[in-house]
Structures are given as structure tokens and as C-alpha cells.
Design a protein around this nucleic acid. Structure first.
Lengths: 192, 192
DNA sequence: TCCTTCGTGTACCAGATGGTACATGTACCA
DNA sequence: TGGTACATGTACCATCTGGTACACGAAGGA
């Protein structure tokens, strides 16, 4: 692995812990055991470094999704539960905090961050839609459910990161999954 | 209204538009037609200003909630729809973008922002729980539904602010409300 | 009239900022 | 051996940063 790559990984770990907002190149460099001169050397400019950090954060987030291979014979509700258990894992919190920090800055148009907005929804909704459609939902409803499930997960994650109240948030997610299970095709729908 | 109050309101409007992240006192002051000297004079320090801005953002957010007086004879689903219509109103987007930007920074422990985390969940969940409990839900489930509804709304709002896809996000919310209506007490629950 | 409060302009400060110039070291390949 | 690509240290730069010192003026109450 190149020195550049090593520095980048270390930089992401550091800003995941400390926040990316107010850090100067010199602070960053000192924490990584190098000099601000080297960061400019490898990444061209501060914004160049920012862009690469964000790409890494994005990649780490997507890795969580990609890791969710399907389990044979698992019910849709249990798949959702496993999905949530994985996302809510405290080991991922630093990266998720950083994700939301950058998301917020991207919404405000900070240079170098806005490309994150292009994929932040659809790179998740696309695969989730496929998984849900495989349960027998019509395509359009599957997409609505994917988008809804993503939003609910992110919203509850924001709650969890703010309050740390794992039990309360878990209960809310369980409520959601219960409602989802009641919608599954092949089940009597109380309204029809 | 004091000069300080006037400046504060103008400052919040400005950072709602431009982001609060990288702005210096001088940039802020220039945009407000004053000098950085005056900002220090009125708010003591940059962080003092930051704190007051955040309080204002928080207050504006809560004003949206407080404005949701109950409507006689409205069904629970329609109340939820009205709730969402109000939140998703584009006129509120700048304030909401700023809200999420500050939220992200608070999660990373930026000084002067973290007090937002104390109330960001419960000041919404408390009143929502009451409204939902009034529909006949048991207390605990009402709280779960409130927390879930808040998270879902915020998650879909993040989606909306990133993609601008009002139709897609509305459809996802409609899916959620449909699932919610199916849970209402006094209705046959398909699992029991 | 005097005094106090509020607001403001000008000028300054020490320190930090992102970025650059230039020389140097080290490894490996021809 | 010489060269070339990567990496690094030192020193410097103009500019900007949050914050301060001080003087000044207008308003208003005693």
C-alpha cells in the first residue's frame, strides 16, 4: 500500500473520531505523525484531501451494505432485524458520525463534498429494492419500501448517535419491522 | 427589538442559506452589513454567536411542531399527512439544512453545539407520544410509534434535501402512513 | 447640565492558515 | 555508476483569524 493510501486511511480514522469540520492541515498532519507539507504533497490541496476522505467514508458505508449477504431460509422480518443490528453496531459509530457530518455540510454546498449527494440515496435504494422485490412485492411498492426503510434506518441512527439510547431505538425499529411484516404479500390485508 | 436581536435573526437567515461551517466573523459581518467588531460586541465571541444561532434554529424547528394544532374530526392518517406536508414545505428547507448541518457537527462534539443533542429527540417525541396515545394506543407503543415517526420523517427529509425528489419521498411517506393506519387500535390485527 | 448606556469606526495584535520554493535524502533500476 | 521517482525537512509567504484598545457620538434620564 502506498504511503498516500496509508495516510488517507489514518486521516479518515482520525476525522471519524475528531470531526472534520474545523481541522487544519497542520492539526491533521500532527495527529498523523507527518507534516502539513506532506499532505499537500500527496493530495495537492486541502480540498483534494477532503474529497478523498469523503470517498473513503462513502466506501466504508457501502461496505456495510455489501456485507449483508442473504441467509438461506431467513424470514423478511429477520433479514430486516439483521440489517439493523449491523448498522447500529457501535463499532461503526465513528464512521457514521462522520458520514452525517459530511452529509450536513454537503447539503450546505461545501466545496468538495456535494458529489456525495448524488449517490447517498440511490446507491442504497437500488440494492434494497431488489431484496424487497424478491419477497413478492410489486416493483413500485418495493422501491417505496426500500426508500422508507433506508430513511427510517438513518433517522433512527441519528437518534441513536444523539441519545445513545439503544433500547429505545431498538424498540422503535422493532415496531417498524412489525408493521412491515404485516404488509407482506400473501397475508390477509385488513383494509381490502 | 434590540439591535442584537435584529443581527441574530439576520445571521440565522444568512447561515441557513450559506452554511455555518467555514464562515468567519468577518464574512458574516460583511454579509449582514456590519463589522466583525460589532459581532464580538454583541455576542462576546464567535462561539457565543454560534450558540445563539443554534438556539434560534432549534426554536424555529420547534415552532413547526407547535404550529400543528389538532383539527377536529381528522383521521390519524390525515393528521400524519398534514404533519409531513408541513415539514416537507420547501420554504422550511434552508432552516432544515442548517439544522442537519449543526446536528452533524454536534455529533462530532464541536464546542457550543452539543447542547442541541440533549433535546433534539425528546422535545419532539414527548408531544408526538401524547398525540398518538390519544388514538388509543398503550403508552409504551405510543412512544415507540412517536420515535419511529420522528426518525422516519427526518430520514425522508434528509432524502428530500439531498435528491429534491418530492414525488418519490412522498410516495415512501404514504407507504409508511398506510402501514401506520393498519396498526390503529380497534382494527383487526392479522397476526392475532 | 452632566453622566451613563448603547452603538460604532479605526487601528492594531499575535497567532494560525493554506500553499510554495528549494534542497536533500533514499531506494531501486539500468 | 548514474539517473530517476518518491519522500521529506526547513524556511518562507501573503493572507486571514478571533479578539482587543481606545476614542467618539448620539440618546436619554437626573
Amino acid at each position: 500500500m502506498s504511503e498516500k493510501q496509508r495516510l488517507l486511511e489514518a486521516a479518515v480514522d482520525y476525522v471519524a473520531d475528531q470531526g472534520i469540520g474545523e481541522k487544519s492541515l497542520r492539526q491533521l498532519a500532527a495527529a498523523l505523525g507527518t507534516s502539513h507539507r506532506m499532505l499537500i504533497y500527496h493530495f495537492g490541496s486541502k480540498e483534494g484531501l477532503l474529497v478523498e476522505i469523503i470517498k473513503t467514508v462513502e466506501a466504508r458505508q457501502l461496505a456495510v451494505l455489501a456485507d449483508l449477504a442473504e441467509v438461506e431460509g431467513e424470514s423478511p422480518g429477520d433479514a430486516a432485524r439483521r440489517f439493523w443490528q449491523r448498522i447500529a453496531n457501535p463499532a461503526l459509530w465513528p464512521n457514521e458520525r462522520l458520514f452525517f457530518e459530511v452529509y450536513g455540510q454537503a447539503l450546505q454546498g461545501r466545496p468538495g463534498t456535494t458529489h456525495l449527494l448524488d449517490d447517498v440515496i440511490h446507491s442504497w435504494v437500488r440494492p434494497l429494492t431488489e431484496m424487497i422485490a424478491a419477497q413478492g412485492f410489486p416493483a413500485e411498492q418495493a422501491q417505496n419500501l426500500a426508500r422508507l426503510g433506508l430513511a427510517t434506518s438513518r433517522g433512527l441512527l441519528l437518534d441513536l448517535l444523539a441519545t445513545g439510547d439503544r433500547a429505545g431505538v431498538d424498540a422503535a425499529m422493532e415496531q417498524f419491522i412489525t408493521m412491515y411484516e404485516a404488509q407482506l404479500p400473501g397475508r390477509a390485508t385488513p383494509l381490502s
